[in-house]
Design a protein around this nucleic acid. Sequence first.
DNA 1: ACTCTGCATGGTC
DNA 2: TGACCATGCAGAG
Length: 853
Amino acid sequence: MSKVCFNSNCKEASEKWRRGWRCRTGEYADLCDRCASAYEEGQFCEMFHLNASGWRCCESCGKQIHCGCIVSFHMFILLDAGGIECLSCAKNNILTPNPAWPPPPHFLSSEPEKMKDISMRDWSTITGSGPIPWQQAPSLFNGSSIQFVQPRTPFEVDMSSAIDRFRICERLSTSFLEKKEEKSFGRLNYGKLRSGPFETVEDRNAGLSKEEQPNPSVNVSHLRSFPKNDSPTSNLSSAAAPSFRNGTNDIDQVSATLSQPPSLSTLVGKQVCSHNGMDSSGEGQVRNGKSRGDGRGRNQLLPRYWPRITDKELQQISSNSNSVITPLFEKMLSASDAGRIGRLVLPKKCAEAYFPPISQPEGLPLKVHDLKGKEWLFQFRFWPNNNSRMYVLEGITPCIQSMQLQAGDVVTFSRLEPEGKLVMGGRKASSAPSDQGDEATLTGDKTPGDDSGKNKFGEVAINGLVKGNLVPASFPAVNQATKADSGSNRSEIDKPSIRSKRKNSIFGLKSKRLRIDNEMMELKLTCNQAQGIMRSPSENVPSVFVVEGCEIEEFEDAPVIGRPTIPAIDRFGQKSQWVECEDCLKWRKVPADALLPSRWTCSGNVWGLDRSLCTTAQQLATEQLEDILSTITEVNKKKKITEQNSDLVVALEGLDALANLAIQAEGEDLPASSQTRTKYAGHKLNCTCIVCIQPSDGNDLKKTCDVADSESLKHHFRTLMERCEKKQLAKEDESASQKPQVDIDTYMSNDTGKSSLNQEESSQGGCLDDPNERKTSVSPLKGQIDLNIQPEREEDLSPGSDSGAMKRLLTDTTENNFMQQISSSSGVSIDLLGKQMQPDGIGGASFSNCIVP
DNA sequence: ACTCTGCATGGTC
DNA sequence: TGACCATGCAGAG
């Protein structure tokens, strides 16, 4: 029977039709041969919809995809930060496809049938209810599904970067998961990880039917390791606790039976497996005759125990072998754990999941290796406790001491396969995982200098001109701001430190703050850069008041963060902006009042559809543009020369305040100094006006400050300026012959300011680990203005502060609505930390976001 | 008096 | 409310 091709652009009648995409009705589009072929080859939209709207460029590779079309729905994924990514890029970045309809057949390749073998039950158990030891995952795949291992389907996500990515997801807004993070993501390259889906995957895939679910990227090796007829118990025994099921107390046997046959994964190199986010099958497990079902059904490791083993650890663990590394769990050492008693209380579920089953309180000796390969012998045992058990590792003191761990630090447990070795690592509390791989990982013979766990977010400095991440990869506080439904688990990621603070004030609340400090250290920007990316919200009329002759505009609403642009006036006198596409680096002209998201690509050029594709040429020849840019640069330089002493560079140590705000955003306890910053009478909740963000010293000024009342603000600035004046006078005396230590041009021309920052920071030693030290330390950048500065506090004035710069800053502030930015920095802060650069600032604004030459 | 061991208690989630 | 777990503490050595 002849049928007309579903493709409206074709309408070819054919008796032979082929299935195309799935329609909203659930039925499939019937296509003629030609269209079907085009569809299956992924060329359909290019053939038929080329002139249609909705084309966007992959944020990573620039490939154009017809996003506004059902046909291409599965060819891209939506990035959290806005924009899209094609599947091939998404695959590399472990981003799951858009959860709606099943992928077209050509994406399923030869695997659709196998895909179907994953039952809904399996999926729900895999993804449904949180983390379990990943080793148990194979039991979820009883059946033929375990065979679908090769070839990879487009949806089979390479987990090599997944761990990192999702760890990062856990800790920071996913908004900044961008290709530039490849540096950090790639750090696990040596460990081709394929693991079960993460919680985040679960989140992303929530609601998908079994056919719609992407390949869970099951660890091949482990799938292969488990015959499909394995009972749950045997699965457990061969996976989670390979031979612990015997319940033997013979250590040799334990050690021997820990070994597993070489898995496929080992054949492809070292692998890192994680169970993060994996859920239990819910199948009861029996060990030693004691039903473990009570635990298994709810056996979800609390996120605080999810291993966040660092790449350095991984490297150390795997340095001498091709072993598969399986991070098991981690635990922050309590005071008791780190005390002299030498007992490490093990999380019950972790102990039951990963350690040998023990039926007697005496337990059994357990060999554990540290990261240097040194073998330790602990006694793994339990105490009856409230009809339950309390598992402990006894005799850990020497090991803990060897690693120089103390309360608040973290011990990690991993397993090496096929050897089955248990490996214990350590991580100093001061070195929260940075995803950069340079945190202090403690080995058995850690040297004192090891814990220079400063994060080096060399590419994450906020710089309006810089392409790159704007938020450090590891950003504990961030995710809090974006945790909605799925955030509950993520939010717990950071709770170890919080939780343990309950009774361990020694590493109390400041720990989190400190971590944020560390991670924020690169999140600095210059005044101009800040201005470049912040602008007043549209239709927001500032109230203007004058302080010391400076007109200061005060905005009520938070500024919007947008992409920096270069203002221009064409020969007709019409204002416009030039903005660089993040992907193709072409400069596009947009209206002067256009408010651009921080990540802007040609596809966002709604003002010039003819220039909305990266493939289209630049309006201006590069030379012309360079002329403009060089002119601007020249002007800029001249201006800078006249301001040589201005030290206009502003390192936003006020990001200190942002850090507080990030914490605030989490709704968690703040350090005392931070708490007071937002609790001034008359202030709105979470108010972070310039006054509120000041460190508290009990000054009454702040008590009476009211955002609505600019008087206090004026007073604040007046005081500030007075202080600055005094400082300036004093400084001018002593530094008349002294040049600013940081060459502004150098800094400004530095994409990230990183080098100078880092140099300075490195000279600061480890002071960043100590907030107190940090507080009084010299600003990493001479002449930087600490927006968190408090004029009332002499000691808070950075020695490097420059009153002239401050004054000029204020002057510039007037010009650039910086006051507004300051006064409403809260919104910015939260955006910076918690979500992302405001992706879609609404409405037009002044040039305040422009790069002012 | 001190340390070690095993259990109890209570805070937190 | 129950489970978990950090810590206290009594008793034994």
